[in-house]
Design a protein around this nucleic acid. Structure first.
Lengths: 198, 198
DNA sequence: TCGTATACGATACGATCGTATACAGGCGCA
DNA sequence: TGCGCCTGTATACGATCGTATCGTATACGA
């Protein structure tokens, strides 16, 4: 589980904080717990981040940076087969950065400058996505583009919101391979044809 | 704002707790704060609910009951023009019971017996909805019905998740009349035709 | 070898947390 | 009239919270 190169106390604190905040929320997690999970002493939080809130801000910054990276990669696909590649990218990112996504989920439940920024970043990605597809003629006519973007944000976050209940309710993780496949098949269908008769 | 019939301390505590838990989360809200918002003394929480957790359980029970009521009303439409009426019902319910919905939103972020039950109830409504529409021939062919239900849950919760950021990001509440109208127009289109070309 | 920054433990602080206890008024009922 | 119950207030208690401040060990460049 552990990496070969030993992480610094600072890095361990960030990872531990991200995981615990994601699981139990900001106010549900104590600094002693974070320090214990990171295997460092409490004092180090203050030394590096000034306070518990400072630690959260740093976590927010890093997660936002990850989202931005996902966004820039989306833009790179511009000239080619945008849609499928972007979805694949997102799926792959979610698998690789599950902790970040679950943190994102929990952060959005608390109203902080960081969570507002996180949401804004997500919206930027999705607006961009809609834009690209419109320019390439993949969008149907007379679509409410703003709501399409919001819709994409919601459906990106949806599985993360349900994930904590998924095992009990569906017998598997939302991010299990089969579940992801079923979901992307369904979403693909909905986005191109819908699933109800008019 | 206040009702004419004075509420009992018990009722005031439930309403105050629901509002504060919704806004700041369970562990982010103190019992003194709840008592102050309700205009009663702290001891009353213990007298009526045994503990802070007991108060939450009672709130969960009531919100679940509200969801169940929404569900039973959905079933009542069975024989007639199910789809539009159910959507109208849900919209009307959300307008009337905004606090309950926002509590639902926050509760789903915490893993408690109550939140699991809340999600299960939502799923039941949506499965039922899909079932009804399938039987009445409103469903397209070869639809993954389980994922359709999950999809409906996500899109029901979506606006609630974004609501706290809505004013700042879109300049209006997610549940403002115009926003609801735009959204239901978009969702209607997506569910019947999608918005992307294949 | 010295100076300095970083990493870390130990402990203490004031505040706030959820909970517990003591008690008061109002009501129905024997 | 007296008793029990319910609703309610006020206050106290122990635990835990985030923060602060010691002291020390280690690493590295001048």
């Amino acid at each position: 589980m552990d990496n070969v190169t030993p992480l610094t106390g600072r890095q361990r604190l960030i990872l531990a904080g991200r995981r615990l905040f994601a699981e139990k929320g900001y106010s549900g997690t104590g600094v002693r717990e974070i320090a214990a999970e990171a295997g460092v002493s409490i004092g180090l939080i203050r030394a590096h981040f000034g306070s518990k809130a400072g630690l959260r801000e740093e976590i927010d910054r890093q997660v936002i940076a990850q989202i931005e990276e996902l966004c820039s990669r989306a833009t790179r696909h511009l000239g080619t087969e945008a849609l499928e590649l972007l979805v694949e990218d997102a799926v792959e990112w979610v698998e690789r950065e599950r902790d970040a996504l679950l943190y994102l989920r929990t952060a959005l439940m608390e109203r902080t400058p960081g969570s507002q920024a996180l949401l804004r970043e997500l919206l930027r990605i999705m607006r961009r996505f809609v834009e690209i597809n419109r320019d390439r003629g993949f969008l149907q006519e007379d679509v409410d583009e703003e709501w399409a973007s919001i819709y994409l944000v919601i459906d990106f976050l949806g599985p993360a919101v349900l994930e904590p209940f998924s095992e009990k309710e569906f017998g598997t993780s939302m991010y299990h391979r089969d579940m992801v496949k079923r979901r992307s098949a369904f979403m693909n269908r909905v986005m191109t044809r819908g699933f109800m008769k008019s």
